[in-house]
Amino acid sequence: MAESTPQESAYRYEICFSGSGGQGIITAAVVMAEAVGTLDGKYVCQTQSYGPEARGGKSKAEVVISNKPIDYPKALHIDLLLAMTQAACDAYFFGIKADGLLVVDKTLVEQLPTSRAIAIPFTHIARHDIGREMVANMVALGAVGFLCGQVILQNLEKALLARVPKGTEEMNREALQAGIEEAQKFNLAELPRSFINDFEEGEL
């Protein structure tokens, strides 16, 4: 199993999808992993942690992306956290890197712990623009897909359509596109560089 020293340096990008059970958090993460891994051809590890409840309760799924085989499968320092509920936001926020990005569902997350955050009303968009609250996860996936810059968006859509039940393809496609469009409205450069100040960063 001896491996040559890597010529190209390895990078690691970590996305954490979080919310409550029943919101489709894990499905969103699986679609992302499928697109990045099987279609984009990068290395990917998708993990999840869960409690005994199938509905309600905190739900978390992680996607680690790399150009090299991934050793540790779970997230260590999150580059992008998606929080679909206030509870998830509060619980997982501290795992984000200093220059990481927080994306929240504005419909359900009222208190932002940082100004380096993007708030989009995923649930509202799903309910009113698409017509089914159920697809809020796919609206969010569209936004995450765009904001992370780690996935080819056409592949994301392809992976999504391969996984959803027959007859719901159009609705899911719309949801994903709505998320991408909403995310495009934000200018990442205008956000604060880091959500901790230089003094705190020095302490890390």
């Binding site: 699986v30 992993a33 891994g37 099987t38 290395y43 990917v44 590890c45 998708q46 993990t47 999840q48 991934i70 499968p73 779970k74």
Partner: peptide
Amino acid sequence: EVVAHTREC
């Protein structure tokens, strides 16, 4: 549990 539920290509 980790290996069981980790998805990889």
